[in-house]
Design a protein around this nucleic acid. Structure first.
Lengths: 366, 366
DNA sequence: TCCCTTGCCGAAACCGGTTTCGAAGCCGAC
DNA sequence: GTCGGCTTCGAAACCGGTTTCGGCAAGGGA
């Protein structure tokens, strides 16, 4: 039926034709169906046969061709991730760790990661459609969950498994993983309140993302808990980059010159605030305290180094991948929901002297 | 033979079974082989038939299943990229743009991007092997080309197409794309020399990467051209991150306190140099001029903002993807080699007063 | 009119796997 | 000794495409 296996042994391994399941079956004197079942743990294969097949597969370096499996099983064994580069800065610093986490977890199950990019939401959905129509991926990781997320709508409509990085407005049938940014916001307020701050500003992200809702509510709750007044003019919303952070920062700083502390929902916002403060003759870490969220590398470089709640994106990627694979294998999404905490990295930006009335080290809240 | 198409029309589109080439053939009354050839531009199909098939495919939303094609053609239509996270910082800031460039170019040809990660070089090669054995990818983009690159050895050995981002020691049979970092280094030296600097230091990357050889030679050439002496104690090698940049910076600054300018092969090195300078009571942009290379976002945040040669990683990704696809389709690697320039972004770190003898605006060299 | 191209398409093999179905062989029970 | 059941495997269908091969009909030249 085929190419002499003896000849294959003799030939140097390089450039050799792949060894297929037929080669394996031939050399074992078994039917290829039998070999397939032996390799895939079917119960109707004798234990001795199974071992013999496994040994031969190992020896001959047999690795099943993924596509050939996919065509019958319908599983590409690939996770999809589409990055929206419309707001590239949102991903930038996260990405390496995030990808590493995903692909590491995927590898463990011999799955792979397919990534695509898109500009804007519409393009994003189009990319996703192509990926599922061509059966290149079995499911999606959806980063930056939006309150009203068209990607979720698509997946529901097409019956494609997915997992959100973040939460969404209507979580029914959604599997998700998220970091409790809201807890971080509340901790930040507590920390400031305990340090004696009375006038605390807030720079939030854009409401289209769910996290902005959560963090806003948490900020307000934290203020209420501390018995502090929330004044709308010292709250900025919709800030997603440094430039917006700068103008928003300038606005709230001017609205209330008595502001001594600002909580930022994102490091980029805080970095913008740094600039605004400088322009207004104020200095972060000396007469303006800042606590932020994300843990970007820029935050460490900043002057003064930014105190921020850091997110472990590698771990997040791992969890997301594992949860998605479980989802693809049929697990109930209700059981695939996890919330992890952010970790406070105390640097210099939150330490200023406010009032002698304040007592106790702020580190209690780490 | 099959499922009533009328029924399919009636049913809501959601969750519908994929439309296969058989469905298409049935509904057209053609053999599926004919449909396939029509779609793939075979010459033995009548023009009217081809048009009819194309229209039907469009109308029914037919999208061939990638894996089924791959099994016969041997093409997965997927580009492989394995990221080495052992030195995560090397990728970090590049990644979003880079991935965007690759996947954008890939999409144009309806290819996709498969990414994997690895720790260390050995793991990297293992990951690559799995990808090609399972036929998940048709070729690789190899970022951060090394002088002696085991990934290249693997690809050659297995006959797998690849393209280097960077150059390598033995370029035979290699397709590559690179940014002319050496030109940037030489320009930096010229710029400093023209501004009157006489004592110029250099912080280089690690020699295992080819770029470090090229940039070293270019630095030396630039110094010779300007008639300046190269002193080994003001040259540091092997710097790949901020910490190493700091200690290397301290060393050369102490070795020659008369140093007024430093060329850095990487922004991270420059950022480390900032810290070293500060510790030694010197200030970049006032009594120490710095020009670097990469164009990281951190460089803009730094104080003072870092003058640096920026790399357009999106464009690089695009070119790499296009070249790799050409390579996979059989183009001769000798014709797949490109060199692109870096672009100088003048900020504040290179502007200091040195000697009144110097004349002429430095911008001549941008 | 006949023959030979040429254009166009159907039929079937093929790719490398998975899954279904049925049958052979062995065993113990009756 | 026969029968039934269980274990174990071979054979073949199948998945959704691509590619080869051959045949039919139309057209052109002699």
């Amino acid at each position: 039926m085929s190419h002499s296996t003896a000849q294959m042994q003799a030939a140097s391994k390089r450039r050799a034709r792949r060894v297929t399941i037929n080669d394996l079956a031939d050399s074992l004197g078994l039917a290829k169906g039998t070999v397939s079942r032996a390799l895939n743990g079917y119960p109707d294969i004798a234990e001795t046969t199974r071992a013999r097949v496994a040994r031969a597969a190992e020896r001959m370096g047999y690795r099943p061709m993924a596509q050939a499996q996919a065509i019958r099983t319908g599983r590409a064994r690939s996770l999809g991730l589409v990055l929206n580069t419309g707001n590239a800065d949102l991903h930038r610093p996260f990405l390496t760790d995030f990808l590493d986490g995903i692909s590491r977890a995927a590898s463990e199950e011999t799955w792979t990661l397919t990534v695509a990019t898109a500009n804007g939401t519409e393009d994003e959905v189009t990319s996703m459609e192509r990926l599922v129509d061509e059966r290149k991926v079995d499911g999606f990781i959806l980063p930056r969950a939006m309150y009203n997320d068209p990607r979720v709508a698509l997946c529901r409509d097409r019956g494609v498994p997915f997992i959100l990085y973040g939460r969404t407005g209507d979580p029914e049938d959604c599997a998700w993983f998220d970091i409790a940014g809201e807890d971080a916001m509340q901790s930040a307020v507590r920390l400031f309140a305990a340090a004696g701050h009375r006038r605390i500003g807030f720079i939030n992200g854009a409401r289209k993302y769910t996290f902005a809702h959560l963090r806003y509510d948490a900020f307000v709750a934290g203020m209420a808990e501390a018995g502090l007044a929330v004044t709308p003019e010292t709250i900025a919303e919709g800030v997603l980059d440094i430039a917006a952070g700068e103008s928003a920062g300038a606005r709230i700083l001017r609205a209330d010159p008595g502001l001594t502390a600002v909580v930022c929902a994102m490091d980029l916002a805080a970095l913008g605030l740094y600039r605004a403060a400088e322009r207004l003759g104020r200095r972060v870490g000396r007469d303006l305290a800042v606590i932020s969220y994300d843990g970007l590398p820029q935050a460490e470089i900043a002057d003064p180094p930014l105190t921020t709640f850091a997110v472990d994106n590698r771990a997040a990627g791992q969890r997301l991948a594992r949860l998605l694979i479980a989802r693809i294998r049929g697990a109930d999404p209700v059981h695939l929901r996890e919330l992890a905490p952010a970790r406070l990295i105390e640097r210099a930006s939150h330490l200023i002297e406010v009032s002698p009335a304040a007592a106790g080290p702020p580190t209690d809240f780490a």
